[in-house]
């Protein structure tokens, strides 16, 4: 069975390593914070200016001066710190953040990503996404394998305006875990009960299948 959004978040959480500073994008990536594996200590950075982000506040304890990059009210954990936007992106550009997880509308087999604009339809802006993808060494995309029209989001080349080029390293979708290699999307794992053929049918870019592809083991 294909994964739901929580399943995608749980699988990505397995990529967290002890000591990582992590930036989570809006949407599915935000859910990753709920599934940190036991014994792993990570800190979440939000580019509007906080490290050490905690859970949502209890009802009635919201603070208008304490939000994340999705403009949601949050809390902080022990050791948290606030900083300005220039310092925040110094952390990001300077590669002090070890993992970036973000959503995408399209990813190409070269690792290009498009997630900020649909010409003539949706023009909201890139926010911090371009800075994040241009600098991070470790970028995981969390997304559904196909769009609402059933079309593949894993393409030979992106049709939408790019956010960054040759930057995505790994993709976790509702159907599979894939690594971006020089030859294309290398299939690493299938979602439970999902066949290699189903992944192939939902992938327009080059899909590399080597040997038996294991099921995810979340």
């Amino acid at each position: 069975m294909a994964l739901d959004k929580i399943g995608i978040a749980k699988r990505i959480a397995l990529e967290l390593k002890d000591g990582y500073y992590v930036n989570l994008g809006i949407g599915i990536p935000t859910l990753v914070a709920n599934y940190i594996p036991e014994g792993i200590n990570v800190e979440f950075q939000s580019e509007n200016g906080v490290l050490g982000m905690g859970a949502f506040p209890f009802d009635g304890e919201e603070d208008a001066d304490l939000i994340n990059a999705g403009k949601q009210t949050i809390t902080t954990l022990d050791g948290a710190v606030f900083f300005d936007s220039a310092n925040s992106f110094a952390m990001i550009r300077g590669k002090h953040v070890q993992l970036t997880v973000l959503g995408a509308m399209e990813v190409s087999e070269q690792g290009d990503i498009a997630n900020w604009k649909i010409p003539g339809k949706m023009v909201k802006g890139m926010g911090g996404a371009m800075d994040l993808v241009a600098s991070a060494d470790n970028i995981i995309v969390a997304m559904m394998h196909t769009n609402k029209a059933g079309e593949s989001k894993l393409l030979k080349s992106c049709s939408l305006p790019l956010t960054g080029v040759k930057c995505v390293k790994k993709i976790v979708t509702n159907l599979a875990v894939l690594e971006v290699t020089n030859e294309g999307f290398k299939l690493l794992e299938r979602a439970p009960g999902v066949s290699v053929e189903e992944v192939q049918n939902a992938t327009l870019g080059e899909l590399i299948i080597e040997g038996d592809i294991p099921e995810m083991n979340p």
């Binding site: 859970a55 209890f58 939000i67 949601q72």
Partner: peptide, 12 residues
């Protein structure tokens, strides 16, 4: 006013 754009909370 300090308006909150996305009021997200959890319950006790």
């Amino acid at each position: 006013e300090k308006r909150i754009e996305q009021r997200t909370v959890r319950t006790k």
